[in-house]
């Protein structure tokens, strides 16, 4: 049901006649967990996202299975034990730029934006507020952000044997290159 809502939101954003929409299907999101025991990094180069620059609305969607790790074993544990990606194959974010007025689309340049919205991981919805950089470039828009989330907030249980290896909070990096729809 939730998937249907997200899909229709994406479609609505893409199809609705008003406004200027930008899209990418190959955005980048990675997360990084640092502890003295181990650094763990997962990269996803297949992020689908639409941004409507006239309203500031943004939608992001990823497949959990598209996150890749240097070591196969970590990827298996990530999918099977922590994210349960067969049960919860997708994660999404739906939100809005709250200070849209700072952006001048006619002028190339970087603008600091504030984004608020719902992050959904493992069907758990959490409100987040993130600072990011939106860059107007010739022929598109780039968006970059870094923020921190806690696995605990999304009911991810980390067994005590590996608790020292996985950070209480993981850093999420977002790098998107949008083209006009």
């Amino acid at each position: 049901m939730k998937r249907l809502i997200i899909l229709s939101l994406l479609t609505m954003l893409v199809l609705s006649a008003s406004g200027q929409k930008y899209m990418t299907k190959t955005g980048f999101i990675s997360f990084f967990s640092h502890t003295p025991m181990e650094d763990i990094k997962g990269d996803n180069n297949q992020v689908a996202s639409v941004i409507d620059i006239s309203t500031g609305e943004m939608v992001f969607q990823v497949l959990i299975k598209s996150f890749h790790f240097e070591k196969t074993l970590l990827e298996e544990h990530f999918n099977e034990n922590y994210m349960e990606s067969d049960k919860f194959p997708k994660a999404s974010f739906k939100g809005k730029i709250t200070n849209l007025s700072v952006i001048d689309l006619k002028k190339n340049g970087s603008y600091e934006v504030q984004v608020e919205g719902d992050l959904t991981i493992r069907d758990v919805v959490k409100k987040i507020s993130v600072k990011g950089i939106l860059e107007v470039v010739t022929g598109g828009i780039n968006a970059n952000a870094k923020f921190v989330i806690a696995p605990e907030d999304f009911n991810i249980e980390i067994p005590s044997v590996v608790r020292e290896n996985i950070a209480k909070t993981v850093e999420v990096t977002v790098a998107m290159k949008y083209s006009p729809v």
């Binding site: 994406l10 299907k25 297949q46 689908a48 969607q61 990823v62 497949l63 299975k65 598209s66 890749h68 194959p89 997708k90």
Partner: peptide, 12 residues
């Protein structure tokens, strides 16, 4: 194959 978003996604 990782699955389907708006497209079918293949990795590695």
């Amino acid at each position: 194959c990782s699955g389907y978003l708006m497209d079918v996604l293949l990795n590695n």
